[in-house]
Structures are given as C-alpha cells and as structure tokens.
Write a protein that binds this DNA or RNA. Sequence first.
DNA 1: ACCTGAACACCGTTCAAGT
DNA 2: ACCTGAACACCGTTCAAGT
Lengths: 223, 223
Amino acid sequence: MAKRSDATRGRLSREAIIVSAVALADSEGLEAVTIRRLAQEHGVTPMAMYWHFNDKDSLLDGLAEHLIEAVKLPEPSDADWDAQLRDILLAFLTVIRPHPALAGLALRRILAAESGLLIAERVLGLLRQAGYAAGRAAEVGTFLICSIVTLANADPVGGPHRTGEDLEQVFRVKRARLESLPPSRFPNVIAAAPALVTCREADDFFDLNVELLVQGVRGLPRG
Amino acid sequence: MAKRSDATRGRLSREAIIVSAVALADSEGLEAVTIRRLAQEHGVTPMAMYWHFNDKDSLLDGLAEHLIEAVKLPEPSDADWDAQLRDILLAFLTVIRPHPALAGLALRRILAAESGLLIAERVLGLLRQAGYAAGRAAEVGTFLICSIVTLANADPVGGPHRTGEDLEQVFRVKRARLESLPPSRFPNVIAAAPALVTCREADDFFDLNVELLVQGVRGLPRG
DNA sequence: ACCTGAACACCGTTCAAGT
DNA sequence: ACCTGAACACCGTTCAAGT
C-alpha cells in the first residue's frame, strides 16, 4: 500500500513498525497485524522485520509494552485507598480502551515490562493499605488488572472495526433477534435487549463496572 | 496422526469434529485448532470439514456452544439473590475453567446460543431482584459474564499446555525475576511474587474473585 | 448426502547472501 | 548494521468433480 518513502522516510525502526501495527490493529483487528502486511506497508521485504524483532511474538510483546507505557499513573496521594485504586484502574482503562483489539495482549504481559510492574506495585500497595495480606493482594490485584483488560476488550463487534452506519445496522439486527425471543422464557433478556446490545459503547458501562470492582475489593474479607 | 477408523469409526460428524477440537485446544492451545489439522486427525481431506461447517468461524461458534451447553444451571430457589448469583457464576466457571484456551470464544457468543441466553436470563433476573433497573442489569450482567471468562482464561502460561515439570520451571524463573527487582521501588511486587506467579492455579483465586464480583454487585448503587 | 483434488492467496520463519 | 531472495511448511477457502 505504501512505498518506502511515506510510511517512514529513511529507515525502518522498531518504533515505526509498532506505531503502524497499532494503527492496523485499530482499523482491521489483531488478525490483520501480520509480519508480511507490516513489511508491505513499509515498502520492505517481510524478512526485514526480523532484524528488528526476533519473531512475531516479540512484536506483540512490543505492542503490549507500547500500550502499557502510555498509562499515566496518578501520583500517590492522601486520598482513601479506594479512590486511589479507582483512579489507577481508570488510568489504565483510558489507555487501552481505544485499542480493543490489542487489549488481550496485555493480559499476560503486564509483569514483563517495567511500566507494567509499576502499575502492579501501586495496585498491590493500595491493597495492602486496604488490609489485604500479600498473597490475597496478589490474587485480587491480578484479577483487577485482568478485568480492566476485559472491559476494554468487550468491544461490541469483534474483529474488523466497523464504522457508524454498519454498526447501527448490526445493533438493529441483534436487538431484533433478542426482542423476538419467547417472552415467557426470556422476559429479562427482552427487557434488557437494547442495553445488552449497545452497553459496551457507553462510558457509563465502564465507570459502573470499575466501580463494581472497587466495591468488590471493599466488600471482601481481607484475610 | 489418526487413520479414518479410530478417531470416529464410520462417519465424520459435527459432534466428532467438535470433540476432537476441544481436546486439541486443551492440549496444544487454540492456535492448534485448524481445519487442516482436524481433518488430518479424522483421516479426511480438509475440504470435508466444509460440509459440516460453513467456515472456521462457525466451527468456533460450535465450540463455544458446546461449552456453554455443558453449564448446569442451579435451579431457582428461595435463597438470597446474591447466593444464587454466586452459584450461577461458579457453575459457569466450573465448565470453562478446564478449557482456558476456549474461554475467550465465549466472550462474544453467549447471547448467540440458546443455552447462553438461559444463563443471561437467570443473571439478569437476579440483578432485577437485587433492585437493578433493566439497563444497569444489562451492563453489570454483561460484565459479570465477561469476568468469569477472564478468570477461566487467566491461565498461567498462555498457548501450548505445559505439564508439571515444565510448569514448575517456568514458575521458578518468573518468581526469581520478580524477586530480583530493586526492593526500594517494588517492595509489594516482591512480597507478592510467589502468589503473583502461581495464584492462577489455586482454587482460592477463583473463589475469592467470584466473591469479589458478588460483593461488587452488592455494593453498587442500583439506579 | 458426503467427500476428494487441484488451485489460490495468504501465513511465519530459516538460511544464505548481498551492501 | 540493515536488508533481499528463494524456499519451506503451514493456513483458510473456492470451485468443480466424484460416488
């Protein structure tokens, strides 16, 4: 698609590859992120990529790290631990939500990058502050991070990104299907149909469920 | 690997294909589940699969449905809504936990299958009972289901399934890496290192975090 | 109804070689 | 240091054909 000159003038670089990979994942989904495809976009042979990355997996490592590094952790403060925890979770969510196709990559790579370790350290610290023992803090903290990824990943339509018009149509079809279920067996699904179909688009969905997580941490025995 | 006779004597069938696909995903991960690979295991041409499934995606639909159908929903009872909700979430988790590689498939397919709609109906019903309005129930319910999938998916080592010996070694290496971080910057990560590495293996991890979700539902404003 | 054969356009990756 | 060329073993899928 692009000749050598416009994607990156001059040389290929890790950074340039990662940036275009993110863009590709956003527009066409993770399965479009391909060594060969990226090479083509940079006007270069597929094998050129192997000078910059050991293999595809380390490209994905790079993508995950690139995202995690963008998280702006709020400074530690005197606020209650639950307020601080919420802010950290929201800071993480803010960064990955625009990249649902890449969210899943973070799942098993948070503790791999320095920036991810910093997030983990802060979350664990607040959980200790809340009264959790180290072991429990690890279990709960792990789950909290995974949950944020899940929220970001809960993109309405998986795979290729569709645009407005298309998306509306997909929603209409899904809603109609749910609403045509037998009312005697599925009253609650039918009542919730509009929200079930579109809720992952609303900011409300994210705020509400981050709050659910924080409330859950508050409600648990600290052992 | 298998000649036509032993995988399934007689004929190929949707069921037989799905069963072997589940086994394959369990032993070698989702990326090993391939039309060609499955065909080979059944001693059949890849194209034979296309008589039983429209394409690979509908094979994956079938896998997801197969799992979801196995969920044994507890009967509605007079127990508190939160106890019932916990039991439903645990019933779902029990089924998908043995198949971490397949868990992700359920994310966007629960509302596609009849059996998934039944789970959704029950969860939504209990949330209504707890005082949630239909819209909020949809938002929270969607997240709860996604979270269970996330828990099941939070398999320690992604990809190919490793066995005991190997796994221990992986754990040792990861723990050592975390414990060798600078103590001044990562005190909590270091203290939690053993649990961070192995917690996804323990039953405790799952029970604790299901409880976190239920407590979260209790702590949220019902709007 | 159920399956094969040949072909197409894709993958990731290795290895040797060029500048 | 950075990239190419040719090759290998894989993918999913279509289309026409066999029984």
